[in-house]
Design a protein around this nucleic acid. Structure first.
Lengths: 150, 150
DNA sequence: CATAATTATCTCGAATTCAAAATATACGAA
DNA sequence: TTCGTATATTTTGAATTCGAGATAATTATG
């Protein structure tokens, strides 16, 4: 028989509940994104630029956890679709910034409110107090987990 | 300016904290899995069979959310590596069961305790009481989100 | 200034995934 | 039985991702 401490059992239990919940919640988001003819990664890039403004490609990869080769691929596609343009950085010629075009911004202005509403519904199983608790717990959990990754 | 209700703001905030926490926690798991030369999907299949015993391929896909074509692909690979075998179901000839070989079972016996310990550490940012709260909140969140997917 | 080390991006090939179509089997109804 | 529908698996082709290596530009060091 395998020896597993009660603490470990509880940790595994939390991990499973966490994963299942994550899948169910993100499924709402994914369906909405797909319904607009976008892929999750494309949406993530557009959302980042929409909220944070022009970003170096490197930053984009770091923010949404994408390998550099994949960043090139997604940015290529979005640029071909006219959603954004590449702009060379004048201060550092190694760097390229991605900037939303008017078309890209319009798209996000059109779909983001709906998307926010989908997210609101997806997490509406918790009331305001519970959401507050969940935020505090998840923030702590995530921060500590990130620390231990170094 | 975009009108967004306070509730929606809170929901988006929860979603972001949730996603970040999930990435940090799962990164622990992914690194451990990789360190054993396995891919996440392969590990998921092995873990399922290890804990639940032989399963129809269809069940495997349903459990770990994998398209049927991908199931065939992963099972092929694991079978070639000698981790499992396919066994035709005598009662229903459409069905194939995947069963761990001794080699596959030994591998899991060897790596699962370590993996459990990695998970324990990954979520150790919360104490026992907090884990209990998190489990309750995440279960509720996940269950309600799943309901709304129908 | 010259060289080494670092950083940002892109290219290329391999691996994994999905979706749709093909195949085989099971099951219910006429 | 026979037909039609449903289910399980495999096949196929396209899309996305990663990792490693190449290139170019910057920064640090002597």
């Amino acid at each position: 028989m395998t020896e597993t401490s009660r603490e470990t059992e509880q940790a595994l239990h939390l991990y499973r509940v966490f994963s299942r919940a994550y899948r169910s919640v993100t499924e709402h988001s994914l369906r909405d994104i797909k319904s607009h003819g976008l892929h999750p990664t494309e949406f993530a890039v557009l959302e980042l630029l929409y909220h944070k403004g022009p970003q170096p490609l490197q930053q984009i990869g770091a923010s949404i956890l994408l390998a550099s080769g994949s960043v090139t691929y997604v940015i290529d596609k979005l640029e071909k679709n006219g959603m954004l343009i590449r702009e060379p950085c004048p201060k550092d010629r190694r760097v390229t910034h991605a900037t939303l075009t008017q078309k890209g911004r319009s798209l996000m202005e059109q779909i983001f409110p709906t998307h926010a509403e989908v997210i609101r519904l997806a997490v509406s199983g918790l009331d305001e107090q519970e959401k507050k608790q969940a935020i505090a717990l998840l923030r702590k959990l995530g921060t500590e987990a990130a620390k231990r990754l170094k």
